[in-house]
Design a protein around this nucleic acid. Structure first.
Lengths: 337, 337
DNA sequence: TTGTATGCGTTATCAC
DNA sequence: GTGATAACGCATACAA
């Protein structure tokens, strides 16, 4: 088992200097070399099964075709399709994806970023950002935010149209005759939680509900336990609600169990809506009315943006917002009179 | 914005030569250097925020601390916890994880392996193997199989105890009085499908069922559509079955819908069992009786095995089999008499 | 225990 | 259009 062939071996076989072989093999510099020699080199490379040593290339060029993806936890069902979309988008451009989980811990995130940067990662796609985060003095490395974003507009991002989704849901509930609608919101420091909350205020007032008829309770996290607790708090204060707009699907499922505890039926007594359309919420009992996000496309778009960013790092930061879709199922019904 | 500090910068600041700094920073060679200088170097490194350039290190040492994980599709709910377990296990050892999806296409898999190998990947963890696969002349790169394995024992693997799980399920059904139990099996060319199928034959005969009372139908894939079709075929031939053991949870859910189509209730007319205990199958209607696999631990164990393998590549290949657990829920009930 | 010298494989710069 | 050369940052064989 001898060592893998190097560019020197290729050059020798083609009867040229290593530098020439390098130029011939690199699409960007191919033009500098005679077509015939270029072909000879390509032929030799193929014959030898030559594959460039990317460590050497990275060392020399200070970049690589590897991107880092950082998510809170891959086990949260929204992330697999996003990551898959990113991976597909990256791979088409010849990039590979490093994936890391932070569990929402900024310390872990820093460690991961450092570790990845040390491996010459060409760029980052972060699904972990908080509204207040800033990359000002931070990464000279191209970075794209996905799913969540920061408040400042300095970093490119790909998110779903949270506001439109909430408007769709509120209108749907109002159309069903609901006049007292509560919101179990996600954390305020995440753009997803915050945007949906703001849109809820917006939509309810613009549809003529008094603030007292549209109370809000914040969950500490986008999880079932946090959602459960928040739902109980909401109904303790506002027992007369006939509908709940949950910050995401997991919170909506928590509403199911909390309402069952309170002896209320869904949707008989209370209508419930989610956000995300995670796998299997269509098979819950009752099937969840929610807003579908194009998670896979969000991922692909993020990959596209990152590649753009790598190609031209100084271009102004784009913020892409992808459309969402209302999915009516069985967890919403006419308001009880 | 100046360049990242190199080991030279660290050495200079500590007043030593780069070689000494290198030895001081590397745990393996730390012993060769005076404790006081070692501390001085470490201090300088910390002050400068030094992170070794892994491209240079890889070039020099011909290895890297990056491992490749290859799965069919991250969106299949069994993989996220496995990948998460792997990532956690790798990271504790300072390794990063490259993740790629193949959609079950061997061609894509080859491409990914080549691409990753070209980037000095230190090892691979594959969740994509088929029974007949062989790595004989293949990868000199350390490799571990996870979830699935090949028939030959040449490659280390971490799998769940499929046979024990099936025995648990069959005994559970027999205890409930079922005497005509069908099996909607997964693909024969995957070890998961095959082992569960073999165990089904084994368990039913050893518990006294005639082969005719334990018919099998194979699904083309571990998916709902394939499971649906296979379930219909099974009941077309054997309408008298009172229980179905599905090859995995997705096939079990397909049994639900196929049986509903046939006008049979679950578990009133027919009991159904799954395999995996995916997220949310406890919230299906009815909640699924299934076997729980320790997916996260499977992933961690695979990472451990890979690190072992990297440390001593010639040691004999271990095959780790992790225990499973029966989870009784509402999809199984007493046999209809 | 520390310093010196060299090379890993590639590409950028400079000659020709 | 091509060749010679140097340098990317690190780790190690060897010398001191």
């Amino acid at each position: 088992m001898d060592r893998a062939p190097t560019i020197k071996d290729v050059a020798e076989r083609a009867g040229v200097h290593a530098a020439t072989a390098s130029r011939a093999l690199n699409p960007a510099t191919r033009g500098m070399v005679n077509v015939r020699t270029a072909n000879r080199v390509a032929e030799a490379a193929r014959a030898l099964g030559y594959a460039p040593n990317s460590a050497a290339r990275s060392l020399r060029t200070r970049t690589s075709s590897v991107a880092g993806i950082i998510v809170p936890d891959l086990r949260n069902p929204v992330f697999p399709p996003i990551v898959r979309g990113i991976e597909d988008g990256l791979r088409e451009a010849g990039y590979l994806a490093l994936v890391g989980n932070t569990d929402g811990d900024p310390e872990r995130e820093r460690e991961l970023l450092t570790a990845m940067r040390g491996r010459q990662t060409a760029g980052f796609i972060l699904a972990t950002s908080r509204r207040g985060d800033s990359f000002a003095g931070g990464p000279a490395v191209p970075t794209v935010l996905v799913n969540r974003r920061t408040d400042d507009g300095d970093t490119p991002s790909v998110t779903a149209d949270n506001a439109a989704g909430v408007h769709l849901l509120v209108r749907h509930l109002v159309d069903l005759g609901h006049t007292r609608i509560g919101h179990v919101a996600g954390p305020r420091d995440l753009s997803t939680g915050w945007e949906r909350y703001r849109a809820f205020l917006d939509a309810t007032t613009s549809l003529g509900l008094e603030p007292a008829a549209a109370p809000v309770e914040f969950a500490d996290a986008f999880t079932e336990p946090a959602g459960h607790a928040a739902t109980l708090r909401l109904f303790a204060e506002h027992p007369g609600l006939t509908a709940v707009l949950a910050g995401n699907d997991l919170i909506a499922l928590a509403c199911y169990s909390a309402l069952a505890e309170l002896g209320r039926s869904v949707p008989g007594d209370v209508s419930v809506t989610g956000f995300n359309d995670m796998p299997f919420v269509d098979r819950q009992r009752p099937a969840l009315t929610t807003v579908r996000l194009p998670h896979y496309e969000i991922g692909r778009e993020a990959a596209r943006l990152l590649l753009e960013r790598i190609a031209s790092p100084t271009a102004p930061a784009k913020r892409v917002v992808l459309p969402v879709e209302l999915v009516r199922r069985d967890s919403t019904g006419p308001a009880k009179v």
